[in-house]
Design a protein around this nucleic acid. Structure first.
Lengths: 211, 211
DNA sequence: GCTTCGAACTTTAGCATTGAAGTCTTCAGG
DNA sequence: CCTGAAGACTTCAATGCTAAAGTTCGAAGC
């Protein structure tokens, strides 16, 4: 019944398209003229500087590395969830329910907000996950407008499995960083995150200082 | 002719769903019981630790901050490209062509690999962009199997506009980091990126050491 | 009590993407 | 030449998403 069988093109959602991105270049290590070979970070930044005067290469290094890294990580997560016959989209739902804590219940609307998609999309996603036995869906009898999505035992176990794989991967990923470096990195990223969250950019891209 | 008009729900592709994610919480700062309010990073990590024994909170801090940050940034980029009547998807194509350098030409297949989507999707995307005048599409007369996608003047100007906005945003984002910190951050991220790229994870999520 | 409004979810139509099949061109043999 | 195979792109059916309309329930006003 393997619905997701590591097709190396899958992961329909959750940064849908990325799975493919990582595999293609490595087919022919020799042929220099024909195999495109994704440009390295340095090449990319050099090109940007060439075409756009006044770009700060240091800033661009941070931003571009961040984006690429995140993409690669999502590809990795996609492969892992695929081995559990799951998509990253489903994993995201499991995560939200687990973070909510026992009794692992949330409404579709709230889930939709958390995951950043429309309520309509959430309806369909819950349909699928319910038919796979990862969650249950039932009306709230106390307030019959609402619907309660609840994690099943199987859903929880799937989350634990996925988490186990993810944590191994993440530990391996950070292997080359010392404990001190990890702390610095986490702290700096958190600081950037706060900056984005506290101050929403207006249309000009400038962050509004709220503090 | 404004096709993209800052609808706060748009950005069909390029991490499609994220645009919505950033807006919802801030409606009612008072109501504590009813407004879900996305859990903070600390809450999320605490929940993971509660439900999954043996998780390294430091690692999780890095990974989770990275993911959230990237999401928020993509929302910001989406808003900016929207003001240029563009989607992030189109911006990605422009970027690839600019990085290729003069004469700003690439084949659809190569573009598809770069952006991590299927050739079929690329065909349609090029259709749209050609009809908007951002690129041209023509058969390579020297090798009539191939197709050449070329950036138009307008496409280049759009890229420059988008880049201008993006660079302002990025500079603002990193404002709180000293030059030294920026260097450290970029260096660490690059190191992580190299680790992911050099060693592809197998199904167990373990990175294969290639060095 | 009836109506009206709003909230929460579902349904519908349209679009972008995937995966598979199809078309067209080139090249290598026979 | 003609044929077969491989490559590059396109076409087609199905999937998952968004936006907008629809449905159902609950709460407030008259």
């Amino acid at each position: 019944m393997l619905k997701f069988e590591a097709k190396e093109y899958m992961a329909k959602d959750f940064n849908a398209n990325e799975v493919r991105a990582i595999l293609p270049g490595m087919s022919e290590p020799s042929d220099a003229a024909h195999s495109p070979a994704e440009p390295s970070l340095e090449e990319q930044i050099a090109a940007y500087q060439r075409e756009f005067q006044g770009l700060d290469p240091q800033v661009e290094q941070v931003v571009s590395a961040l984006q690429r890294l995140n993409r690669r990580m999502n590809v990795a997560y996609g492969r892992q969830t695929a081995t559990l016959n799951m998509s990253n989209a489903e994993w995201e739902v499991l995560k939200a329910l687990v973070v909510a804590g026992a009794p692992y219940q949330m409404g579709p609307g709230e889930l939709a907000k958390r995951l950043g998609l429309t309520p309509a999309a959430m309806t369909h996603r819950i349909d699928r996950m319910a038919s796979e036995g990862l969650v249950t869906r039932e009306r709230d009898e106390a307030n019959r407008v609402r619907v309660i999505v609840e994690l099943t035992q199987e859903g929880r176990e799937k989350w634990v499995e996925a988490m186990r794989m993810a944590s191994v991967f993440e530990e391996d990923l950070l292997q080359d960083l010392s404990t001190e470096e990890r702390g610095q990195l986490g702290e700096m990223l958190t600081r950037l995150l706060c900056r984005v969250e506290d101050a929403q950019p207006d249309a000009d891209g400038r962050l509004n200082d709220l503090d």
